[in-house]
Amino acid sequence: MRYQNTLILKKAFLTLVIALLSIIMLFPLAWMLSASLKLPTKVFTSPIEWIPKNPQWSNFSFVWSSGEVPFSRNFLNSIIVTVISLFGTLIVCSMAAYAFSKISFKGNTVVFLLYLATMMIPSQVTLVPRFMIMRWLHLSDTLMALIIPSVFNIVAMFTLRQSFNSIPNDILESVWIDGAGHLRTFTSIVLPMSGPALISAGILAFVRSWNDYMNPLIFINSERKFTATLAIKNYLNVDGQPRYDLAMTASIISLIPIIVLFTLVQKYYFQGIATTGMKE
């Protein structure tokens, strides 16, 4: 009994320590939430007014629907880019992963190594050529400029290949003997058996697209086509003035999909980055 009490005490104490530390970690985000509900004149007060006296819920409707380009437009752009990239990545990368993992053909290893080798090269090296290619393909300043390149995700391909490798070939061979081809085994055996791997690769792709900053910055010019991530910056200069209240509101809105996604599927994501997805 005495021993058990000490255990509970220890558990409570450690929880308290962790809670205190998480206050430091969450401080900027709590401030963000608080500022998003304030009047511009009340954003910076001393001492900090954590719970606004007159919460300005209208900040949200203002950011969402007012202005030359309402934030809802940018938010929708982000949804379009992210969702198409997500499914594109899963289709393209799982097909490649299947070829690498389950089909033995001439050049299999060579092509795989060529893919892997490019992981060492920072994306900034290819920045200028990609900018030119987008111009030549007339994709500059379109959402397609963000979607198409993001679909070729070597990390996702690598993760999925690892997962497909763990499916024993015997299962597939029994189907091949029945005369079924690779397309059948791919769609009706390998994909259904790889649910968790597909989900974790999908979440990684989602976060990457949603939070991407450099590509929209370079490939998108017109504000109507900005993604949410890029558009947040606009509120730092509203008629020459930084509007922190609105910037925080837009930030909170852009965080919602990510937080919702994580509370739903955090298990898969943490498995995903803990196993193979070392690089963001």
């Binding site: 900027p28 401030w31 976060v207 949603w210 939070n211 890029l230 947040i232 910037a247 925080m248 930030s251």
Partner: peptide, 14 residues
């Protein structure tokens, strides 16, 4: 997992 712009604007204020 917070986007880089959201992080940057809040820390600008911080």
């Amino acid at each position: 997992i917070t986007s880089i712009t959201a992080v940057s604007v809040v820390w600008l204020a911080m």
